[in-house]
């Protein structure tokens, strides 16, 4: 493979992962605030459908995105009311919403299947796009891809470097403590979940208005569950989650590219590799924190011990402690 092809491929991976990044960032902040929103898959479909239809009627992609974000927020609001205010299980509500919104998008979007619509234009950044390597890699994309580039460091900075980000993390780790410091836990969680919902809705529209232009039944079905899994795979850290999205995108391209190279091996299987990997990593994480394994490792010679320790430390992630738990002040 020549270097030019490599640049094109990496650029394709970066662009292809953009909607997933937007969705996973939405779910990451939601979960960091201690709320599990399982409804991603349905919410994304509903966002994709409504965004596409709104764009079609107004001939304006911006309105399409706006509508998709609002729809995402609306679905998130249902989750908030039922689980944060009325104390029903977040898992149950999110799960029901996922299935409900999927069917709803199919039913309401029936008229708009494979109708030509509006789409986001490509927008190379002047001058920068002509740079060798970096130009095609980073600066010759649609605005959504730039948004995905900005979103990851933004979320990271917000969560780790700002006061409000600190509050969000405390909501996920020790809501009682936050409460006693005068933070209105439920209200904050409402806010974050709504923002997360809007991002997921946008991600849906990013498919129907850009990456997989148009609408069809179950247009993005499955991608929401994948996004959800990637958030876990990424250990709720924006950088790792983004990495997960790119790994997933790369494997999808590998599945296409290797079809003839691998002879009879069905490369469709490669699509599930990230999930097998996710489970292996989760197991490794578990092992690394188990005292028995630690003891074994400690007995190894230093050459082996140090990299293993480093690996374990790096792997060690834990879900936000209060994730999915109801909060009753």
């Amino acid at each position: 493979m020549n270097s030019e092809q490599l640049v094109t491929d990496v650029a394709a991976i970066l662009a292809g992962a953009a909607p997933l990044i937007i969705a996973t960032m939405g779910e990451t902040i939601t979960e960091r605030a201690g709320v599990v929103n399982l409804s991603l898959d349905g919410k994304m479909l509903l966002g994709a459908m409504t965004g596409f239809v709104a764009g079609l009627y107004t001939q304006n992609v911006l309105i399409g995105f706006l509508v998709a974000a609002l729809v995402g927020m609306l679905v998130a609001l249902v989750l908030c009311v039922l689980s944060l205010s009325l104390q029903q299980s977040q898992l149950a509500v999110g799960f029901v919403l996922a299935l409900l919104c999927t069917d709803l998008s199919s039913f309401l979007g029936h008229e708009y299947v494979r109708v030509p619509g509006v789409a986001v234009p490509n927008l190379p950044v002047p001058l920068l796009a002509d740079l060798p390597v970096l130009g095609p890699l980073l600066f010759d994309h649609s605005p959504l891809v730039y948004a995905s580039f900005v979103l990851v460091p933004l979320v990271w900075w917000w969560l780790s470097g700002t006061r409000s980000g600190l509050v969000v993390r405390s909501l996920g780790e020790r809501p009682e403590a936050a409460h006693s410091r005068g933070v209105h836990v439920v209200r904050w969680r409402y806010g974050i979940t709504l923002i997360g919902g809007a991002l997921v809705g946008l991600a849906g529209a990013a498919y129907s208005l850009d990456l997989k232009q148009g609408w069809s039944h179950r247009h993005t079905a499955g991608l929401g569950w994948i996004a959800l899994a990637i958030v876990i795979f990424g250990g709720w850290s924006p950088w790792r989650v983004a990495l997960g999205c790119y790994v997933f995108g790369a494997l999808q391209i590998a599945a296409i590219r290797w079809q003839s190279a691998l002879g009879g091996f069905p490369t469709q299987v490669l699509q599930v590799a990230p999930f097998a990997l996710m489970i292996v990593i989760l197991v490794l994480v578990n092992m690394s924190s188990s005292p028995a394994v630690r003891r074994h490792v400690d007995r190894l010679p230093g050459v082996l011990r140090r990299p293993l320790h480093a690996l374990f430390d790096r792997l060690a992630v834990a879900a936000p402690a209060a994730l999915g738990k109801p909060f009753d002040p």
């Binding site: 399982l38 899994a229 299987v269 197991v283």
Partner: peptide, 30 residues
Amino acid sequence: LRVYGRVNEIFAGLGLNFVATGVTLYLVLG
């Protein structure tokens, strides 16, 4: 995974669902 790995059964289950589909894909296409 849940009991000894402290991996939430939802997350483990979600991942294993995809892996199970992968197994059938491999068998049906392979």
